[in-house]
Amino acid sequence: MKVFSNTCSFNYSWEEVSAANWQKYCPWNEKSTHVTAVDTLSRRVDEETGILRTERLITCKQSVPEWLKSVIGCTDTSQVLEVSYVNPTEKTVTMVSQNITWANLVRVQETVIYRPLSATQTQFEQAARITALCGGWQRIKNSIEDSLVSRFKENAMKGKEGFECVLEMSRRVFAEERERERLRSQGKMMV
């Protein structure tokens, strides 16, 4: 098993980050073109705790290393189940993702937590555990795990840049929306 972890922060409030998080993989994010679809599978609010639990299916088109293609007999599409928990009292968003494609060969489980650092800053904490399951050769297991760890490293940087774009755009759109509402209510008062 190999572990990858990464922490960074965003200069946006937790509320902004948690809302923009639902749109992380949209056309505003030019760095995540490998995500081709995001589907919501279930969603509910727990009555007791107020926690919003969501299941999403993320579809990716990944360029898989050539040597790995020959091992797994490849398809270019892979899918991930992401279960997220928004805790409005503690102000945390926790997302646990696991691969459903090639799940009998390798198990990747990633946990991401967003929590406020201050009123205007949010911390992003990411940890992934990668375990190759194929029996036998330790060398092959190691190369599969290493290859996925370096993929995580590459994507972490791109992920931050891409999400920054989404945050900026959604702040702009929200501001425009508020302005429209303000004008609308002003208009009403004039009449």
């Binding site: 599978l41 299941e55 299916l57 899918q79 189940l81 279960v83 646990v96 696991q98 459903i100 494609t101 799940a103």
Partner: peptide
């Protein structure tokens, strides 16, 4: 079917 297995793990 793949989802059902993943949910079990989760």
């Amino acid at each position: 079917k793949l989802l059902a297995e993943a949910r079990e793990d989760n």
